[in-house]
Each structure stands twice: as structure tokens, then as C-alpha cells.
Amino acid sequence: MATSPSAKLKSPLVLLLIAALMAGAVSWVAYYYLQQREAAMKEEIVARDKASEVVRVEVAVPVADVPIGTVLNQTNFVARPVEADLVYPDTVLAADFPGLEGLRLARPLLRGRPLRLSDLVAPEVNDVASILPAGKRALTIEIDNINSISQTLRPNHRIDLFLLSKGVKREGAPEQEDGTLEQASLYMQDMLVLATGTEFHDISKGEAAAATKMVRPGQVEGKDKSYDTVTLLVTPKEAARLMIGQKMGSYRVALRGSADRAPVALATLRAGDLLPSNGSRGNRGIEFIVGGKDQIVSELAVPPSQQQQLIRAFQGARPPPVPGAAPVAQADTVPAGMPLPTQRAGNPRSEPF
């Protein structure tokens, strides 16, 4: 008996073969799509890299971990290319390394880490005259621990100088006004510190020399070096002005921020502007005097709104008038500014309110 075509299609073997063919076709289509997509992404990445054109620079790095005090040379340091946007401003480039050979490390450096100027010990200045620019002078002034900002003032800092002196005494002024003649004035500003003690800063090297003075984390560079003088970089005219100021009084140093170069307009401040006037004592309040020696024990400043009530209280405590004696006029009001009565010995002892 012959088998019908529909019966052949229902055979498990035929169904399995058809399913395998369909799965293979789907797999080939998916593989082909993924290959095309991967190729497109690679082309996109290559095109983007070419458009950005990442710039690389060569920096100096140690070939192995190096300890403090290691001398720089081309044996223990090599060049390494890194992306330019990852380089610090004070990173030592491979092209600049030969000029730094012979210097020593101020701290350990790990293998492959870029060398920075802040990692180096600053060279000492042996000839001060060789670092002075044309037309400039180096002038030294005396300071103390307060003026040195607790010994943290360093070369290349900028400071303002305040002059503490005595003003001119007015003709016929009383001796009590001598204390009000003290004055403070902004004498000179934006002065460059060339040296603290014997530690000088080579200004001819610009920012590179300043970078070697950077404070490291947890450390104040040179804090163990004490000093009592500061050398400033000045013009001859500024030097003469500083000498005259030393004869007039004493200096106080105010440290400026590293980026603060703006001039300051400040009027002279006198002690008389801060102290209260030495006028009459009658307007200061109520005086309490004990012992009959006119010695003031304390004073009580009374607001104007309460002065009238206190005046009436003192007047009400007076003894009654003697019969036949002329009556004593009692004012109900007291002119503004009149001194209040004083409690003296002989009256009952007064206690503070």
C-alpha cells in the first residue's frame, strides 16, 4: 500500500531535519549581522580616535623604586610617553631632565611614576648677587616670631608691611593724650621675600624654583630652620623708604595670598580713633564711692530713659525740711546731659543693683 505525502511530513525524522535546517539558517543570519555590526563599531572608534588625536608627551620616570637622597642621572631614570592631559604643571619632561641631573630627591619615588619638581631638593644659592635682577636691591629687616608668621614665612612669599609709630602731638595737648598718638599705617605692600634668614630663593628661575618650595602633605618645608631676619627684593627708592621707616617705629608683616597682587588703599589708623574720648566724667553714669576718700568703687551706666526715675528716688530719700527753714527748691526735671548724683561715705552704704 502506497504512503501519502502528508504522512511523510509527519514523520519525526523529517520534522527534525527541517528544524535543524531552520536553526542553522537563523544562526548564520545572526552571525553575519554581528560581524557586520562589530566591523562598523571598529571603524567608528578608529575614526573618533583620529579626530581627537590624543597628544602624548615623554616624561622622566624611575626604572625602579628610588629612596630619599637619590641623585638624578640617566641610569636610574628613563623616558616614558603619557597622555598630555595627565601631566602636572611641575612634571619633569624627558627633554628637561639633563638640566636637573645631579639634584637629589626630597622623598621616595615609585617605579614608573613621573618625576615632579616638588620631589627634588632645592639647590642652595651660594652667590646672592648673582640672582638679583638689574635695578633691584636686597635689603634685610629684623623681625620676630610674630612677624615671621610663626616661622612659616618662606622665600617667594609676598607681604605687606605695616608701620607702628607715634603721630605728631598737638600743641598744648594734655599729657594724658600721649597714649592716643600710637598709629598704624600700611607702609609698603606687595613686597617679594627674597630670603628668610640665610635661605634664599633664586628668582631668575621663575616658577620652576618656586615649585621646589611647595609644601608636601603633612610637612612644612624648612620649619626647623629658625630665623630673625627677612631679606626683601626692592628698588633703591624702596630701600631708602624702608630705612627711614625703621627709625620711625617698628614693622609688622602681613602675608598675602599667592594670587593676590591687587593694591590696597588704607588710611592711617590712630589709637585716638579707637579709644573713648577723655571728656568730663559727669556723663559716664552713676559713681559709687565708699570710705569717704572720694575713691570710686564702681560706676553704673544708666540709660537716659531711667535717669529721671533714679533722680526722683534720690530726692525722695532726702531728710524732711526743718521747721522755719527756707524751703529747698526741688526740680522735677533734670536737663539732658546733667551728671547724676554720687553716693559717698556718710550715707548708707550702697550696693550694686
Rank of each mutant, 00 (worst) to 15 (best):
K169A: 14
A345W: 07
D65Q: 05
G218N: 15
P155S: 10
G99C: 01
G99R: 14
L274T: 10
P303T: 09
N283Q: 14
A345N: 08
E44S: 15
L340N: 03
A95H: 12
Q189N: 03
L120G: 04
K169T: 00
R170A: 08
W28P: 00
F353A: 10
S118Q: 06
K169D: 01
Q176V: 13
M248S: 13
S280G: 11
P276I: 05
L232A: 05
E124K: 14
S185P: 00
G324M: 12
K136F: 01
K50H: 14
D90P: 04
S305K: 14
V78W: 03
A329L: 09
P335E: 15
R104S: 15
N76E: 06
S11D: 15
P341D: 03
N347Q: 15
I143T: 07
A326Y: 06
G324Y: 07
G291I: 02
A79Q: 05
L103D: 10
G316W: 04
I68H: 02
T152S: 15
A254R: 10
V55S: 12
P12G: 09
V29T: 06
E44H: 10
V82S: 09
Y31P: 00
M188K: 07
G69R: 07
P335T: 09
R261Y: 10
N147P: 07
V61R: 05
M188R: 12
M41W: 01
Q36T: 09
V128Y: 03
S226C: 00
G167W: 04
R116H: 09
A184Q: 12
R281T: 07
G285E: 01
I141W: 03
A20K: 03
K42A: 12
F77L: 14
S6P: 00
P98L: 13
E101I: 12
E142S: 10
Q295M: 12
